[in-house]
Amino acid sequence: MLEIRNLHARIADEDAEILKGLSLSVKAGEVHAIMGPNGSGKSTLARVIAGDEAYEVTDGSIEFGGNDLLEKEADERAQDGVFLAFQYPVEIPGVSNTYFLKEALNSIRRARGEEELSASDFLKLAREKAKLVELDEALMKRSVNVGFSGGEKKRNEIFQMAVLDPKLAVLDETDSGLDIDALRIVANGVNKLRDQNRAIIVVTHYQRLLNYIVPDQVHVLVDGRIVKSGDKSLAEHLEEVGYAWVDGELKSAQTAGV
């Protein structure tokens, strides 16, 4: 479903590369975890997949469902079924959560040639999906993320994912800032959305989240490249030995390469 080859990317108008030849292949139905220390490029990868114009791809390719993803704008990618759960969901005062999400869903439906949902059908759908992450219905009427607690914001992201029903969901540090109860609720929501037609990429610093969302594959990202891939035991091993171990592995790999 997702095929990333030799991806190089940087912040637009800056010289330093953040992604330095990253390759990744994700099939429908799979859950992949991307782990890595701070500054390794995890969030950059998430945003480049979603189409953030703040980043510039200088080399490499991303194919999604057989199409070139990089030539599309963020909204077109979302219409094609790409979803990014933000690490820091944005507050938009003056725009209600319900209005926002209904616009989003109907944009996707229009792009697919489907009829727009009526207000009442949308509300029915939203109510049903809100239960997945135990989101208080009152929050749906409020302005997008305004006055939400950290946990509510993260739950709201997964709620949006549930409503928009993407083919590929990228969860950027969805565990950050969550206490254990909130983490469990969010993870349960994600697990209910696991589906043979959907791929999920979980970007995280810690292994903790992966106790709840068990990945099919784990990749370790260091300095803009995937340096190690394996099954869920890789995440457990990382938790024991820390990222310093990966740094060591990387250095020896580079030495061996020379």
Binding site: R47, A50, G51, D52, E53, A54, E73, A74, D75, R77, A78, Q79, F83, L84, F86, P89, V90, I92, P93, G94, V95, F100, L101, E103, A104, L105, S107, I108, A111, S143, Q160, L164
Partner: peptide, 24 residues
């Protein structure tokens, strides 16, 4: 970007943000 990542086109996203600014 947040709005566009939710399938809302740039023009509409921009207008939504202007409305939000004026909503105060």
């Amino acid at each position: 970007f947040y709005l566009m990542s939710r399938a809302i086109d740039k023009e509409t996203a921009r207008n939504v943000l202007i409305h939000a600014f004026a909503a105060d």
